[in-house]
Amino acid sequence: MYDLFFQKFNEKIALTAEEEALVKQYLTPKKLRRKQYLVQEGDVCKNICFVEKGALRAYVLDETGDEHITAFALEGWTLGDLSSFIKAEPATWNIDALEDCELVLISKQAYDELLQIMPKYETYIRLLMTDAYMALQRRTTYMISLPLEERYLAFTQMYPTLFQRVPQHMIASFMGLSAETLSRVRNRISNRK
């Protein structure tokens, strides 16, 4: 139920068996089926979510009701509407399951308490947030500075498993492109070779 969670935790900072048992007390195991929501826009995102099994995506809806994918999470990744979680304000993201999922949730209360009582948890969160920030920095840079073909290649290198796992129209949405544009980009790349 928590195998991958603790594997990833220990990769950042090693825990003793006692420390693992302590962290475990604060975790909420949760199954989510395909197409079910973890949180919908307008509700407070009460949990940060670690994917033990399955895949999630986050998206926003524009004025015309079109979906724009803002994030994905596969096994071992962490996802949540962070602003909503930290500030207890309504979420702007919708997060739903792309596949049947086994998740490990951390509520705000559990998060705050763990940060207080356990310096190693603070280290874990610092490293997690740093990784997430660096990924966001790279992604933003690619988005605004690279030509489409290079952007696509950079994204495939950055998220190799993701690109094999989720449908192309979702990848297009995640890259801020229409499905048709992404298809043309991919054709141009394969013609280069």
Binding site: M1, K24, Q25, Y26, L27, T28, P29, L105, S107, A110
Partner: peptide
Amino acid sequence: ELADKIKDVANQK
């Protein structure tokens, strides 16, 4: 008896 069965999965719930 039920508590034994659900204890782990009812954590924090």
